[in-house]
Amino acid sequence: MNNIAEQLQLAYHNLTQKCLQLSANIDTVQLLAVSKTKPVSAIEAAYQAGQRHFGENYPQELATKATELSGYADICWHFIGPLQSNKTRLVAEHAHWVHSIERLKIAQRLNEQRPATLKKLKVLLQINISDEASKAGIAPADMLQLAEAVNQLPQLELKGLMAIPAPGQSETAFAAMQQLSLQLQQRYAQATELSMGMSDDWPLALRYGATMIRLGTAIFGARD
């Protein structure tokens, strides 16, 4: 765990260099440290090294970690995994962002269960950009219909899109996501976020306008 700070420093160095190469604004790109399955001590090590945005895939794990680390008031929790309706309350009460909205029912439950004392829950619509039967997300053709419904929920704030391309299809998928993002922004000016790119393909995602990249292995090492 001693090298988490070094790995994080290297990740930000690489991100900065890639942004310079692409003439992209580093200030518009958020690096999420994907901390799923990692112990609280690993998150604390990353926090001490300056990291504030963390991604979790499982509602119970998110809730447990957020509670245990509640003393760190500036940690920003991103829920990035699939979400079932019986687990929405945990996410509504502990997350700042949800990247994986694919059904209106889930969005409605998050809206109803979001505590009034908290700021609006920022949400992204997950697009099944490679049309994989095994993967969550809506079809691109359904994007605007779901966006319109989600945008009307008072405790949620529609912020953009997320996708996880099929292996070997990253470039085609990222290019398509960039166009969908531009289409969404024409109707919802605040929906500027594009969450795509992981440890193996994030430089390519940046080229196609990613504003959030999700790094787990590159920071914390192989998953437990």
Rank of each mutant, 00 (worst) to 15 (best):
L184F: 13
L31Q: 02
A49R: 01
D201C: 05
R109L: 13
V98Q: 08
A189D: 08
Q48I: 01
V91P: 10
L110V: 05
N111D: 13
A73W: 09
C76Q: 14
L194K: 13
M212R: 09
K18N: 13
D201S: 05
R214S: 11
L121I: 05
Q152P: 05
I219M: 02
N151G: 14
L31M: 03
L121A: 05
Q17G: 04
G137Y: 03
E93I: 08
R207Q: 13
Q48K: 08
Q169L: 07
A66D: 04
N2K: 15
R109Y: 06
P59R: 11
A49I: 01
G197V: 06
I101V: 15
M177G: 01
A33V: 03
P140T: 04
A45Y: 06
D27Q: 13
T28Q: 12
Q51A: 05
A149I: 11
P165Y: 06
L204Q: 15
H94L: 05
I127D: 03
M1A: 11
L124I: 06
A95C: 12
A92N: 09
E171G: 08
A42L: 11
L83M: 08
D131K: 14
L184R: 14
G168W: 09
C76E: 14
L146V: 08
R187E: 14
F174Y: 14
T88W: 02
L15F: 08
S130C: 04
N151C: 12
I164N: 05
A66S: 12
N111G: 06
A205K: 06
M162W: 07
P167N: 02
I219Y: 02
A149S: 13
K87W: 04
A218Q: 07
E157I: 05
A205S: 04
M1E: 09
S199Q: 00
L22M: 12
N128G: 00
I101R: 07
I164K: 04
N3Y: 11
L32K: 07
P82R: 10
A33E: 00
Q17E: 11
L158Q: 12
L124V: 06
E6K: 15
H94S: 11
I75R: 06
M143I: 04
G168C: 08
H99N: 10
K122P: 13
L153K: 07
C76F: 03
K87L: 02
D200T: 13
L69F: 01
H13V: 12
L118S: 00
E112R: 12
L20V: 14
Q126D: 10
P167A: 02
N14V: 13
D74R: 07
G197W: 01
H53Y: 09
T172N: 00
Q183G: 00
K135M: 01
D200Y: 07
V34I: 13
H13C: 11
A176F: 08
L182I: 15
R103H: 15
K120H: 06
T172W: 00
Y47A: 03
T28C: 07
R223V: 12
H94T: 08
M198D: 01
V34M: 06
R89F: 00
W97Y: 14
N3D: 12
L125H: 10
V91W: 09
F174M: 09
T217Y: 03
A24L: 10
S199E: 00
